[in-house]
Amino acid sequence: MFSSIGWGEIVVLLAAGLIILGPERLPGAVSWTMQSIRKVRDYATGASGQLRDEMGADFDQFREPIQQINELRQMSPKSVVTKHLLGGDSSSVDDLGRTVRETLDVQRLSKPSRPEPQAPAAPPPAPSLEKPSVTKRSHDYTDWDAT
């Protein structure tokens, strides 16, 4: 019933109770709360027992679909595969999972450590939009025309 309440919450509730009720009334309040919880639990158990007695076999017919729904809620992909495809034997799936984990561990250990990040290389110079300059050639062809 209180499986979701942790020790931290209990300490907070006790501290709040101590502050609000004071040290004189806190033990009485705790005992009253515990008695009330027991009574509620006894009433619920008694009501389900009385319902089971009155309905007889019909109660089990109503209870069976609820149990099936609870089983479906607890199903995981692994349990579905093992139940329907492997007949409930999960050893092969467990072996496969263990092998995959070992392979991943080996690969992770065999990878070299990350190299130091290098500064990015300087980008090549951008092409100029200006017209290239005309340079004088070493051979002057005008001399040939004169002859």
Rank of each mutant, 00 (worst) to 15 (best):
L51V: 10
S92E: 09
A146G: 10
L96W: 08
E130A: 14
H84V: 14
A29L: 02
Y43H: 14
L51E: 11
I66D: 13
I69Q: 02
D145Y: 15
S36L: 12
P27W: 09
I19A: 07
G88T: 06
L86R: 09
G87P: 05
Q74R: 14
T103E: 00
G87R: 11
K39S: 12
F59Q: 04
G22Q: 06
I5L: 14
S90F: 04
H139Q: 11
F62M: 15
P127K: 00
S79P: 06
G17M: 05
Q74A: 14
S90Y: 04
Q118L: 13
V106S: 10
R101L: 10
Q61M: 08
E130C: 06
W144V: 13
V100S: 00
Q107I: 14
R98I: 01
L72D: 07
L104N: 09
T45Q: 07
G8D: 13
E54C: 09
R73Y: 14
E24P: 00
Q50P: 03
K136Q: 07
K39D: 11
L72Y: 05
Q50E: 15
L21N: 03
D42C: 02
I5V: 15
V134H: 05
A122F: 10
V12T: 11
S4V: 09
G56W: 02
D105K: 04
G46Y: 10
S79Q: 04
K131D: 12
A119Q: 13
V30F: 06
Y141H: 14
P132A: 03
R63Y: 10
D53P: 01
K78F: 13
V12N: 05
G6R: 05
G97T: 07
G56S: 02
S133N: 03
Q61N: 09
A16D: 09
P123D: 12
P117D: 11
V100L: 04
R41E: 13
I10N: 00
R101M: 05
S79W: 01
M55W: 05
Q68D: 12
S36M: 12
F62Y: 15
A122V: 10
P65M: 05
P132D: 05
Q74V: 01
T103I: 00
E116W: 06
Y43R: 15
S110T: 14
L109T: 08
M34Q: 13
R137K: 10
A16P: 00
T99S: 10
E116T: 08
V81T: 15
T33G: 15
A16F: 08
G28K: 07
R25V: 01
P112C: 06
D143L: 12
H84A: 11
S79Y: 01
E24R: 03
T82P: 01
D145S: 11
R73W: 12
Q67Y: 01
T135Q: 03
F59P: 02
K136V: 08
D42V: 01
D143S: 03
R101C: 04
G88V: 08
V100A: 04
R63G: 07
R114G: 04
W7L: 15
P65H: 08
D95S: 03
R52E: 13
R137Y: 07
S48Y: 05
S113P: 07
V40D: 10
A57T: 02
R25M: 01
T103D: 00
A16Y: 01
Q35R: 12
E102Y: 00
L14C: 06
T99E: 12
I5D: 00
S91I: 08
S128G: 06
Y141A: 15
P27D: 15
L104F: 04
E54Q: 13
S110M: 15
A29K: 03
L18C: 08
S4F: 04
H139T: 13
